[in-house]
C-alpha cells in the first residue's frame, strides 16, 4: 500500500487507500425503494371505481372515486396527509385485487395495517371475515375481539378503517336495520349493502317487532337475520327471538357460522 499522507481536502485521489475506500460504496438491495414508496391505482368495481394505495406489505388505503369527487389529486393528498409517505402511480394493481373487487370476495387480500393500534387491527381482522350480503351488529365485533363492552370504540375504529369496501366495515350495522354511521356517509353504506342483496327492509321490519334473531325449528339453530342459514329457513319453520337467551330457553343453539353469541339485552343500537 502506498503511504502518502493526504489531507483529503478535495484533491484528486492518487492514493490506493482512498480508492479502496471509494470501492466500499455499495448499491442497496432492489427492495429498498418498495419500502420507501407506496403505489396507487384506480380500479373498477361493481359498486363504483376505487382508488387503492399499496406496497409490498399489502393494501394500505382505499377511497371510493365518489368520496374524493372523482379527483385523483384529492385521493393522493389525503393519502399523504395520513401516511406521510411518497406515492407513485403503479404499473399494475396489486395481485388479486381485480378478481377480488369483481367477485366481492376480498378476504384473501393482503392488507398493510401497520399504522393502526392493536385494537383497531383486531376490529378490522374480525370485520374482514363478514361475508358479502350479511351484516353483524357493532356489539358482535366487540364480543368477537374479546372486548364486549367496547362497543363505541368499535364504532370509532371502524370509522378510521383505512381500507373500506375491501375490509367491509359497511357490513357492521345497527341491529335495528338502520345501517348507521360510515366513512363515506350512511347513504353510501346503505347502497353498498343493497348492492350485496342485504334485505335491509326485512331486517327493519323484524326489528320493529323486536326480533333480532331467527331460528329454525327443524334444526334448532338460531342466527342473525342476514346469515345465509337464516335466509334459507322457510316461513313455516321460522321462529323470531328478541335475544339469544330467549332462544336458548327454547332449546336453540347459536349458529356456528354467524356466531350470534351476544349476551347483553336487546342488542339494539350502538
Amino acid at each position: 500500500m502506498v503511504i502518502i499522507d493526504r489531507d483529503g481536502g478535495g484533491s484528486p485521489p492518487v492514493d490506493e487507500l482512498e480508492a479502496a475506500l471509494a470501492a466500499l460504496a455499495v448499491d442497496p438491495p432492489a427492495s429498498l425503494s418498495a419500502r420507501i414508496f407506496a403505489q396507487w391505482c384506480r380500479v373498477t368495481s361493481p359498486t363504483g371505481d376505487l382508488y387503492v394505495a399499496f406496497s409490498d406489505q399489502g393494501i394500505s388505503y382505499v377511497r371510493t372515486a365518489e368520496a374524493v369527487g372523482d379527483d385523483e389529486t384529492v385521493f393522493l393528498e389525503s393519502f399523504r396527509a395520513r401516511f406521510e409517505r411518497p406515492l407513485l402511480a403503479a404499473d399494475r394493481p396489486p395481485p388479486g385485487l381485480l378478481p377480488a373487487v369483481r367477485t366481492g370476495r376480498t378476504r384473501p387480500l393482503r392488507f398493510d395495517l401497520g399504522q393502526l393500534t392493536d385494537f383497531e387491527r383486531a376490529v378490522l381482522t374480525v370485520t374482514a371475515q363478514i361475508p358479502a350480503g350479511q351484516t353483524r351488529p357493532y356489539g358482535w365485533v366487540a364480543k368477537e375481539i374479546g372486548r364486549p363492552k367496547a362497543v363505541r370504540a368499535v364504532g370509532t375504529a371502524l370509522g378510521r378503517n383505512p381500507v373500506p369496501v375491501l375490509i367491509p366495515c359497511h357490513r357492521v350495522t345497527r341491529s335495528d336495520g338502520v345501517p348507521g354511521e360510515y366513512v363515506f356517509g350512511p347513504q353510501a353504506k346503505e347502497r353498498l349493502l343493497r348492492a350485496e342483496a342485504v334485505n335491509l327492509d326485512e331486517v327493519r321490519e323484524l326489528a320493529s317487532e323486536r326480533i333480532f334473531y331467527l331460528g329454525s325449528d327443524t334444526t334448532g339453530i338460531v342466527c342473525f337475520p342476514t346469515c345465509h342459514h337464516a335466509r334459507r329457513i322457510t316461513a313455516k319453520h321460522r321462529k323470531g327471538f328478541r335475544n339469544i337467551e330467549q332462544a336458548a330457553e327454547h332449546g336453540y343453539r347459536p349458529c356456528l357460522h354467524c356466531r350470534p353469541g351476544i349476551a347483553t339485552g336487546d342488542a339494539v343500537g350502538a
Binding site: 466500499l24 460504496a25 455499495v26 448499491d27 442497496p28 429498498l32 425503494s33 420507501i36 414508496f37 393522493l76 399523504r80 411518497p86 406515492l87 407513485l88
Partner: peptide, 19 residues
C-alpha cells in the same frame, strides 16, 4: 412535484445513503 422529484432524489442518493 414532491413525489416525482423524490423518486429521482432516491434514485440519485440511495447508493451513498445505503453505503
Amino acid at each position: 412535484d414532491l413525489d416525482v422529484g423524490f423518486a429521482e432524489f432516491v434514485r440519485v442518493f440511495q447508493r451513498p445513503v445505503y453505503s
